[in-house]
Write a protein that binds this DNA or RNA. Structure first.
Ligand SMILES: [Mn+2]
Ligand SMILES: [Mn+2]
Ligand SMILES: [Zn+2]
Ligand SMILES: [Zn+2]
Lengths: 150, 150
DNA sequence: ATTACTTTGCAAGTAGTTTGCAAAAATATT
DNA sequence: AATATTTTTGCAAACTACTTGCAAAGTAAT
């Protein structure tokens, strides 16, 4: 089988998968939403909104549309956010089967990821990987009792 | 002993403690730095830069100075940051003896804190406290091997 | 096809934060 | 204590990431 046909098949699959996910989450199917979601399915990220915008075919949609789509994906939990650099959100497809976290180098900003989810163990593993001067930031988000009543 | 004298003593203690901390961290002692650090020692936070600015005596320093001081405190690790709301940094004094994390209500934005540091246990405890629809975000920060060499 | 509703591009606006620069304050040197 | 050197500050302007109003274009239900 020619590799060209193979990669074309993959694109179709991503598009089909995107359409399915959009519909399943009550979002209408538009060109920008399909493109952005396909991209996040294909490349794992996490990516900033600008990185995503630049990865899209030129002039294919506006940067404001990228932000709007990403916000909708976050609302529907199709996409997760990470705040790794100050003032700059990063986005990636939320695959609950592959829950994971990130480490960013304080100097070169390279982002690495890991699947462990217990803090001491994570820190030991990161030390083994050669990281130094490790810090972490852990925040929880939920709805408090007061707000559940109101 | 009159309570007035007592509270005055406390203020002196905070100022003395601030001066000590500034010097220990190689920062020169200035009025804004003393005021901001004293405030963070007195009230735990976490507070946004604007909240801190508004808590200071009126016209006592510029908002840009508050940002500059907070950034220096973060660099020297006197202060920790939390990114609880999108695009809005929160700051609090970093007391290594009282390592803890935060939960923010998705609706009313009220910030609560807890000292547990293992994820499953934390989530169980938060459920017991009455929170619903809990998510978490955990990021690590460190210096990678490549950057240590360079 | 027609209708009702949603989304988009564009340009302008906003929030939070940073920066250049001259004046003022803090520290080091004499 | 006076002076020199270095650092910090206030102010205004700039900047970055992100959002929004609105008219035109697209989507989806009938
Ligand atoms: Mn990831
Ligand atoms: Mn706290
Ligand atoms: Zn690095
Ligand atoms: Zn609440």
């Amino acid at each position: 089988m020619p590799s060209h046909a193979h990669s074309h098949k993959k694109v179709i699959d991503l598009e089909a998968k995107s359409i399915e996910l959009l519909k399943a989450n009550g979002l209408s199917v538009t060109a920008p939403r399909k493109m952005i979601l396909s991209l996040l399915l294909k490349e794992h990220g996490p990516f900033s909104a600008e990185e995503i915008f630049k990865k899209l075919p030129k002039y294919s949609c506006d940067q404001a549309t990228v932000y709007r789509c990403l916000n909708q994906f976050v609302e529907t939990q199709l996409v997760n956010t990470a705040y790794l650099e100050k003032e700059l959100a990063h986005f990636e497809f939320n695959d609950p089967q592959h829950h994971h976290h990130h480490i960013i180098c304080k100097l070169c900003k390279k982002i690495d990821s890991f699947h462990d989810c217990i803090l001491d163990k994570i820190e030991t593993n990161l030390l083994k990987k050669g990281y130094k001067d490790i810090q972490h930031r852990l925040e929880f988000f939920g709805v408090c009792e007061t707000c559940q009543k109101a």
